[in-house]
Design a protein around this nucleic acid. Structure first.
Ligand SMILES: [Mn+2]
Ligand SMILES: [Mn+2]
Ligand SMILES: [Zn+2]
Ligand SMILES: [Zn+2]
Lengths: 154, 154
DNA sequence: AATGATAATGAAAATCATTATCATTAAGAG
DNA sequence: CTCTTAATGATAATGATTTTCATTATCATT
């Protein structure tokens, strides 16, 4: 009886095929980068990282793939107020716990916190319920962010 | 004894001068536009509106003024996921109550809600206290937004 | 009211992240 | 292996925001 490892593939191919998309090297490469970083990378940073192993993959493909992954809800697109969009793997596909962000207005440092999350999530759920009731608004996403100055910047 | 009205000037000039800035027609015109709308206008929309009364004011000045007003904390810069930045008068200078936003992912409609705000703000304050304690992070701003589909778009 | 220092402005060019175009390549069904 | 067509790379285009620079306007001072 041989133990057969499936490599990195956690069923990514199936997920893509299931949505009617093809499973390609570019897509794997980009997911790999997102899986192995703890940062919130911009499209260009992801492109640079992908380039190290696959110099032929173009920036446009990175943008296209990220858009697809956001649509598939595999990655979250984040906005921290610098001009570029930033991305991180969605909770389901990440090793990180559910967290929110603290953003330093001066140096741009991001702190992820998981404390207080329970209370926040509980309140958010209650609020979501009330809001969807009152405004007939179907909420599928929320965002909480705190802005200020990090320890080093004050 | 003559009643002397001070026109629109709620001490704007003093506020600007106090920060070392000059009080100019452009700045007045832009603040007037922001004061008399209930929308969340983009820079270009503000520019177009200003143009009606002051055709000589340029788009660059609108951008520059908005940046200044944000820095002075007179207006809030908002991001609703469409690409352009949007602006609204800060609570202190607005007739609107403290509110948060519901953003429709399809049509872009924005709903401002004031219900549940008390609970949210209370929780936010508690969280802010805890976070600044733990991370030595000086929080001066938060943002909460819900994304989903409005009644018409579901 | 006139002057002068310089902040503010308008017009236009420049930036920069993101998208669109289009010819070429490569998934993957059969 | 072959064929259909989604996906890709290179590059041009777009669109919001910034920068540049010569000119104008604010306002403290005379
Ligand atoms: Mn994060
Ligand atoms: Mn609002
Ligand atoms: Zn910082
Ligand atoms: Zn809608």
């Amino acid at each position: 009886m041989v133990l057969r490892l499936r490599g990195e593939g956690h069923g990514w191919k199936g997920r893509f095929r299931g949505c009617g998309y093809r499973w390609t090297l570019s897509r794997k490469a980009i997911i790999d980068v997102l899986s192995s970083t703890k940062d919130h990378m911009s499209a260009e940073e992801i492109y640079n990282s992908v380039q190290k192993n696959y110099p032929s993959i173009g920036l446009a493909t990175v943008y296209r793939t990220l858009e697809l992954l956001v649509e598939m809800r595999v990655v979250m697109r984040l906005d921290f107020g610098d001009k570029r969009a930033r991305y991180e793997l969605a909770e389901t596909f990440s090793s990180k716990d559910h967290h929110h962000h603290l953003v330093c207005n001066r140096c741009g440092k991001i702190i992820e916190y998981t404390e207080f999350i329970e209370d926040e999530v509980e309140l958010l759920e209650k609020t979501e319920k009330g809001l969807s009731m009152k405004y007939h608004f179907k909420i599928d996403n929320h965002m909480i962010q705190f802005y200020g100055l990090c320890k080093a910047c004050q």
